[in-house]
Every structure is written in C-alpha cells, then in structure tokens.
Design a protein around this nucleic acid. Structure first.
Lengths: 306, 306
DNA sequence: AAATTTGTTCGAATATTTTGAACCACAAGC
DNA sequence: GCTTGTGGTTCAAAATATTCGAACAAATTT
C-alpha cells in the first residue's frame, strides 16, 4: 500500500495507555490484549516513524524524549479526533452521539440522575457522560471543551465568553461545626477573629485551565483541602475543621445533631445563585432537551430548597 | 479488540482523495489500489461512525453534509498528524525529516537550487519541499505553518511575531514597458496622472490567511492580475500593461530591447530589502544549516546584484 | 536463593484488507 | 435507440496485518 500517515490513532491509544499505566503489561491488561500485542504495536509505530520511542535498557521500558513528545502531541491528536467523530455524528443525526455534562458539586445528584433517567426514555442511544466539578471547575470544563453542558456552575462565568447561562436556583450556605468542636459552645455571632483561630475545610477547585477559586476562607486561616463537598461535610462532622456547607446537603446531619449551625458576624446564612450553562455554538437535540428541562426546573423554584 | 477511535487517518486520506479527484475510481487510481478497496474503506468508515457519508443515488456518489464536515475536519486532523510526525522525527534525530521552504518570487531559483544541491551533499535523507509564494505569501506560509523557512520575504513581517528575520539583500525595481507601448515614447519622468491611464500588471498575492498585499498600484488604475512575476514580465513584454519589475529579472529583456526602463516621478528605480525568516521555535539541524548558508549569502552581498 | 514481574521472540491462529472478476446502473456518443 | 464507457458494488480468494499463547531472558522484589 502507498503513503501511510506514519502514525495511527490506535497506536497513539496504546502509547497513552502505556504511559498512564506505567508498563506494557499494565497497558495490555487495560486494553484487554496480551502483552506481545502491545510490544508488536509499539514496534510497528517505531518502524513507521523511524524513531525509537522507548529506552529498553533495564527491564522497564522508559519513554525517550521523542516518545514523550509523541505522547504529548498524540494526546492532542486523539482529543481532536474525538471531536471530529462527535461532530460528524451530530451533523448526521441532529442528535449528539454523546453529551458531556459537568455537574457542580452543589447540585444534588438525584436530581441530575432523575433528568438522565427521563432523557434515556427519549433518546436511549445517546451516551451521557457526567463529571463532577468543584467550584470553578464546571466553568473550566465548559470553556476548555471538556463538557458540553455545565449544571450547577457558581459565581461569575469566565470572561472568555462563548457560553450562555441561565439561573437554576439559589443555594443557602450555612456555617456549621461538629457538636464537639470548640466553636459549638461559643456565643453567637462568631467573629472573624474567633473563626480564624480554627482550621477551615475547603473543597479543591477542579479547574484545570482557569485560576482556582476559593470561597469563605479568612486571611491567615489554616486550611484542610479535600476533593469535594461530601468529604468536606464528613471532615467537618469529625471536627477536623469548620466552614460553610449548603443547607440542603447537611439538613439531615443538622436534624440528627451531628452538625451545628452557628451564626457568624456575616449572618447565619448566605445565598448564591446557581447556573446552568452551555457552549453557545453547540447545536444538537440532546443539548436542546436538557436546556428545556433545566429551564422548567429553574422556573419551578430550582433544586436547592431544603 | 476494544474501543476504537471510530476513524483512522488512512480512511481520512481515502476520503480526501475521493473529494480531490471527484470519484472513487479516480481516488483508487491515485492511491494505487483497486476501486473495490476504496469502496470497502469508506464502507468500514461509515460503519464505525454509524453515519452515511455519501449519497449513492445516481451513479456518482456525492458527499452528504456529514461527509463534507468529516472531510473538512479530517483534513485538519491529517495536517495536525503530519505535524506530529515531523516533530517527533525532528526530536529523535536533531534533523528534520522534511524541511519546507517558501521561496518568494523575487528570489532567483538557481540560487535556491544551488543551496539545495549543497544541502543534499550534507544531508541526503532530509526531504526538502519548496513552494513559490508571491508578495505576502511567504510570510503567510511561515506564520500559518505551511513552511519552516521563508526565503525572499518582502516588506514588513506580520504583527503576530513568532519568527526571526535577517536581511538577504536588496532588490532594485525598475518601471518597465514594452517598446511598442504608448508610454515607451512619453517624455520622462512619467507622471502618476499619465501612468494611471494605462493598465497595470500585478502578481497575485499567494497569502491564504493574511490580507493580500498590493505594491506599486495607483488609485483608480486598471489591473491585470497574473499568478507570478515571470508571467507579469511576459505580459508586460506583450504590452498588456505596465509596472515595476526586479532589475535582475529583466536585465536580459532590457539588453535585448524587449523592455524599456522609464523614469517616473518617483525616480527611475526603487530598492527593497529582501529577508529570510524562520519560525523562532523551530529547532533542527536542517534549518540551522540553511540559516548559516543564508547568513553567508547575505554577508557576501546577497543574491540580487544584476 | 527463589519467586515475581517485565518485555521480547516466534509459530500458529485469527482478523482485516486487497485483489480480481463479474455485475448493475447511469451517462455519453453515434 | 443502440452501443460503449464509466462509476460503484458484491463476493470469493488471496495477501497482509494483528493477536494469541507459550517459552524465554533479564531485572526486581521478597
């Protein structure tokens, strides 16, 4: 056969798996293939490029500089190829083959799963992909193309534009501590000076490109960073720190006496608007369906009433 | 085998060939394959995408909207893949597998070919690819990534930056007309008002992304646009129009009496600096070699003495 | 020192792609 | 209207590519 591109997307997937899993053997396992098949694929790739991608001295193969460059560029190529596929499928059917939804950690997953359940009755063949994002991560996912729709984005959207947003509801945040935490018995309202003496628990922003955001931290305050709000809730129940949590998330803990709401000099609660947003240029029936459902949800008072 | 990307670069090459040649049969010929192999490849592509790419009513297959979208996006993907390959090969060897040179139409090709001849004695395995660019086309080729090196770029480089330039020499432009052209007998210096009454011959800028440039045209003047300077020279010899041409290009025509130099109110000639430029971030032994040779050429007085 | 892991080799088996011939449908030329 | 040529498809056979499974050598871990 004539002129070959020198690389194939399959080969780049193999290379990516090797890099992520750390060995040919582990990559083979992930790809449901035998190790010699992976060896064969890499050998073919090196042959067609005329380039050595792995340093095989020692019994663990390590990427050469060229191998690392190919891995990096190859991942971009795979991402682009994925976009090409999904775009073609969308144009062909009007329906997205896959819709990627970034779900802010303030959003109750049951509501999202209810929506997905209803959606699958309408379009069972469309794949849905949910990811959980913390703080600015939902915006980040949207503007960097990792998500088509963000549900539960908070604060101001990034200045780059290119997306459309609508309000979904409001979330009430309450300042809570464990009943055995020293602040539990302190007279209200708690002052900043008093709060600052105790460690805060913060959920890590899942942004990758945008600057990470922090909310509710006082200057000079020690911080225990956890991955998401649920773990933050558990850490605060253990008395490992203090901070704000959405009332709807901790209503049960409060009723059970496992968390105590304390008024601070900022008041006993604050309210934030929660948005859903989508990439303005994205067109497809699946996204349209979700927009309509979320618009209805927003009209009925949203998802955050406790 | 598990998860496939849905497309392959091979398949995109086939699709591209079909579109460029206009039929499956012609594409098969270009790819040195039998027609049923092309039919098979497209069928496999449609199957893996779950999308119909060709409308087969009538006996000539025509691209559907999804097919056109895939063609367009697929060409971008192939271009990117090509860049990935060349980048990896360059990192692996220090030498580029291929060096692409945009040659401005003012540059005498013999000089460029002399350089290439010498280069091939040093690095016979590196592929060289020359393209001829007119006016701003050399800059355009450089900044859009169609070329690694531009020889004979004129005027100011585009504001985007990202390239480094050095002077190669100066070109003297003279205003010439055919001996039987009405302006040949007009008293010198020719005024703008007089020149404007006659058609100009202009070479079309080969820029694809940058705004096209024009040089030496008077407001309101009729213009006969041709593809390059050589055809411009031939058109002017035929008396089809007037305009500036590089002295080194027309020295023989002048000596033979086939073109006449006329002084204008701007003087009898103008001089422009000619540059060579490269993408600043590009690293490779082949580019380094050419830079050194061009630096030497620039030091010795350049390539444009007549 | 023994056991385990990693990656390679190689023949056999399986999967994919290509070829070549035949066919059908449409277009062009007479 | 008939004949010829072109375009694309089908399908069995052939060729090529990829995977598997077993064995092996070398390095690492226990």
């Amino acid at each position: 056969m004539n002129h070959k591109p020198g690389i194939s997307l399959d080969a780049l997937l193999v290379l990516d798996a090797i890099a992520r899993r750390g060995s040919f053997a582990a990559a083979a396992e992930e790809l449901h293939r035998v190790p010699s098949s992976v060896t064969y694929a890499i050998h073919k790739l090196e042959e067609s490029l005329g380039v050595t991608l792995f340093d095989r001295r020692g019994h663990r193969a390590r990427l050469t500089a060229a191998g690392k460059a190919l891995l990096r560029d190859g991942r971009d190529l795979l991402t682009m190829a994925d976009g090409v596929v999904r775009n073609v499928q969308r144009i062909a059917t009007g329906w997205e083959a896959e819709l990627r939804i970034a779900v802010g950690d303030l959003v109750p997953y049951e509501k999202v799963l209810d929506l997905c359940t209803a959606f699958y009755r309408v379009a069972p063949d469309t794949r849905l992909r949910l990811s959980t994002e913390v703080l600015g991560g939902a915006w980040d996912a949207l503007v960097t193309g990792r998500a088509d729709l963000a549900i539960g984005a908070t604060g101001e959207g990034p200045p780059s534009g290119g997306y459309t947003l609508r309000p979904l509801g409001e979330v009430e945040f309450v300042f809570v501590v464990a009943p055995h935490h020293p602040l539990a018995d302190a007279p209200e309202p708690l002052t900043h000076d008093l709060i600052r003496r105790y460690r805060a628990v913060a959920a890590a922003d899942s942004s990758r490109g945008l600057p990470p955001r922090t909310v509710g931290l006082l200057p000079g305050q020690n911080v225990f960073t956890v991955p998401d709000l649920n773990i933050k809730r558990q850490a605060q129940k253990r008395g490992l720190g203090v901070g704000y949590l959405p009332r709807h998330l901790v209503a049960g803990d409060i009723a059970a006496g496992e968390l105590v709401v304390k008024a601070t000099e900022d008041g006993s609660s604050t309210r934030h608007t929660i948005y859903y947003a989508w990439r303005t240029r994205h067109q497809g029936e699946a996204l349209l369906w979700f927009k309509e459902q979320l618009a209805n949800a927003g009209r009925r008072g949203g998802w955050f009433s406790s």
